[in-house]
Nucleic acid binder design. Sequence first.
DNA 1: AGGCAGGTTCTTA
DNA 2: TAAGAACCTGCC
Length: 273
Amino acid sequence: MKITIQDDFDLQKIADSGQCFRFNVCKEGLFRAVAKDKCLYIKELGRGEYDFSCSQKEYEDFWKNYLDLDICYRDIRGRIDKDADPYLYAASEYGKGIRILRQDPWEMLISFIISQRKNIPAIKASIEKLCILAGDVIDKSGEFGDVYSFPTPERLAALSMEELSGCSLGYRDKYVHQAAMDVWSGAVDLGSWKNLSDSELMEKLLTLYGVGVKVANCEILFGYHRLDAFPRDVWINRVLDTRYPEGFMFERYAPYNGVMQQYLFFYSRAGEL
DNA sequence: AGGCAGGTTCTTA
DNA sequence: TAAGAACCTGCC
């Protein structure tokens, strides 16, 4: 079905933004997103038009929300003053089209636990191995290979340490195992955590083995879609040190500091420091 | 071949 | 309480 999108929406930038690991380009102008038990192909038609591989109903019920199309990112960018903050303005112009996807807290938790001290291709490779090992086939039709769902807590918890190690998790294998056990057993209820305050949520996340402040902030921003969370990784710290020695204007951009973080991250990674 | 990559935990003072 | 080292693995 054909969809027209007026707001900021750039599939390549979203795929490269580092927030998602199962949203990739298949070939020029064709992207594939995998979420829950669903798989979506999006073809760029130009002029803000796209061909979605799903039904109207599935779009309305799921993908519209996943792509966060009820929020206007142009308005959020509009909060940036070119004169007051020229660097962020340049970053936002460069990153125009990035959106914060509404991804699953469980998948994000495991993904960002895996992400520590890994580069993006390595993160993606580990996650795909996990999906093939413990996920279900959700799409066989594709010319771009079988597509597997992300493992459920139950399936992931059932994997042996040897199987986990086979997914190139390295020392993170024990973190993934423990997180899976915690969620599967019910000791950790990620769904109920959405009702917690920001500080309570952070506190809960930090109790998890293998989750520190950076991973917790990624979970809060990408898993719980709280757009004010501001994950600080090596790239962001580099930007803050070199470009914001007097401090970043967090108060000014609240409650959208996480969106600003994405622009800064994307811009700095592109070598525009 | 040695260092480093979207950090966190463990150990030491 | 706060630095510093150790940690898997893959890729320059």
